[in-house]
Simulated scan of single mutants.
Amino acid sequence: MHSYTRAESRERRRLFLKGAHQSIGDNLDPRVTARIHAIDATAAERGARELAALERQADTARDTVATAKAAVKACGWGPDRSAARDALREAEKNLRRAERAYHRAAQS
Rank of each mutant, 00 (worst) to 15 (best):
M1K: 05
H2V: 14
S3Q: 14
Y4C: 02
R6C: 10
E8V: 00
S9E: 11
S9D: 08
S9Y: 03
S9H: 01
R10C: 00
E11A: 08
R12S: 04
R12C: 01
R12I: 02
R13Q: 08
R14Q: 00
L15V: 10
G19Q: 10
A20P: 08
H21S: 12
H21T: 15
H21K: 14
Q22R: 02
S23E: 15
S23Y: 11
I24H: 13
I24E: 15
G25D: 13
D26Y: 09
N27R: 12
N27D: 15
L28S: 10
L28D: 09
D29H: 03
V32L: 06
T33F: 13
T33V: 15
D40K: 10
A43E: 06
R46W: 06
R46E: 10
A48K: 06
R49G: 04
E50F: 15
L51Y: 04
E55G: 10
R56H: 12
R56F: 12
Q57V: 07
A58S: 07
D59P: 03
T60Q: 13
D63E: 14
T64C: 05
T64R: 09
T64D: 09
K69M: 09
A70P: 06
A70R: 14
A71E: 10
A71G: 03
K73I: 12
A74P: 12
C75G: 15
G76D: 04
G76F: 01
W77F: 10
W77T: 13
G78V: 02
G78K: 02
P79H: 14
D80R: 13
S82K: 08
A83T: 09
A84W: 00
A84E: 02
R85I: 08
L88N: 02
L88P: 03
A91S: 06
K93R: 15
L95V: 03
R96M: 15
A98S: 11
A98D: 09
E99A: 14
A101C: 11
A101G: 09
Y102I: 04
H103V: 15
A106L: 14
A106Q: 06
A106M: 11
